[in-house]
Nucleic acid binder design. Structure first.
Length: 283
DNA sequence: ATCCAGGATGTAT
DNA sequence: ATACATCATGGA
């Protein structure tokens, strides 16, 4: 195991892990959304990553390269450069200040996709529970220094799960989304374009993936930082604070927002989403 | 009990 | 293209 000390004075690990963008990380000792040390783990390329917050840095333990960790946590991104792409906008400026430690993570495609397949009409803590229950039931259990760690199954491993198995985990009607999508992926039928709008259409070929889920996967695992996922919170915030950008049509609102906020619209979305969720702005 | 939650799909117009 | 019902589950 390598041990990296990474300088990250403008990074809040706790906030980044618990703000509801990722369901692929776990708190090392305890529930993700509960109390506990700011120490988290995930698996990437079958390798364990453990990250712990220090004062102005983080400590990462992993067999992977340092760059992989930085990319996974989004600390390879330069926030100054990102802010310079933003329009002059008071609300966004305010929210980005309050949330300056929040980075957009880059999770692995498959576990990220499955968690957002579970997300429709569901609250964030329950999405996480579904993700954990799938890992518990169909994933490998890894022993690390006496701790049992959860590893999310690969798409091949999850192919063993029937729709009924998934329903029994409490996925409800989302069980079919996961089961059918896993089939499609294992048949090797998905190629994702380099172009954002084409990539979103490509993802929507998966059963259970609509505009919003596609945007989440594009933003949180495939590095499309222009994606602006429009869930109910985000849409209400747009309607109230940016009525000129609002549309009931997803594609219209999306292109309006991307045109206004620019190539890092996804960061703008996260700032505004969490400002709305935390009640800093009314929706 | 009734309503609602990081929506998507199927069907009818 | 747009409108509407339907889809499971658990917590408030």
């Amino acid at each position: 195991m390598n041990k990296y000390k990474i300088q990250a004075p403008d990074f809040d690990l706790e906030l980044t892990m618990t703000c509801g963008q990722t369901f692929c990380w776990n708190r090392f000792n305890g529930e993700l959304y509960g109390e506990g040390d700011s120490k988290f783990y995930t698996f990437r390329k079958e390798k364990l990553i453990i990250v712990e917050q220090k004062r102005d840095s983080i400590i990462a333990e992993t067999e992977l390269a340092r760059e992989e960790v930085e990319k996974a946590l989004g600390i390879d991104q330069n926030l100054e450069d990102i802010r310079e792409t933003f329009p002059e906008d008071e609300i966004l400026l305010q929210a980005s200040k309050e949330l300056s430690g929040l980075r957009i993570v880059q999770d692995e495609f498959f576990p990220c996709l499955v968690s957002y397949l579970c997300s429709p009409q569901m609250q964030i803590p329950r999405i996480k529970k579904m993700h954990d229950d799938i890992a518990e039931k169909f994933g490998e259990k890894i022993n690390f220094d006496g701790d049992e760690l959860r590893k999310f199954p690969s798409m091949e491993e999850l192919a063993e799960a029937s729709e009924e198995d998934l329903r029994n985990l409490g996925l409800g009607y989302r069980a079919k989304y996961v089961a059918e999508t896993v089939k499609i992926l294992n048949e090797g039928g998905l190629v994702i374009s380099e172009d954002y709008e084409r990539a979103r259409e490509d993802l929507k070929k998966l059963y259970g993936v609509g505009d919003k889920v596609a945007d989440c996967v594009l933003l949180f695992s495939l590095g499309f930082y222009q994606a602006y996922p429009l869930d109910t919170w985000a849409l209400k915030a747009v309607e109230k604070y940016y009525p000129e950008l609002y549309s009931e049509n997803y594609d219209d609102a999306s292109s309006n927002l991307r045109e206004f906020f620019g190539p890092y619209s996804g960061y703008a979305q996260e700032y505004l989403f969490h400002a709305a969720r935390k009640g800093w702005i009314d929706v």
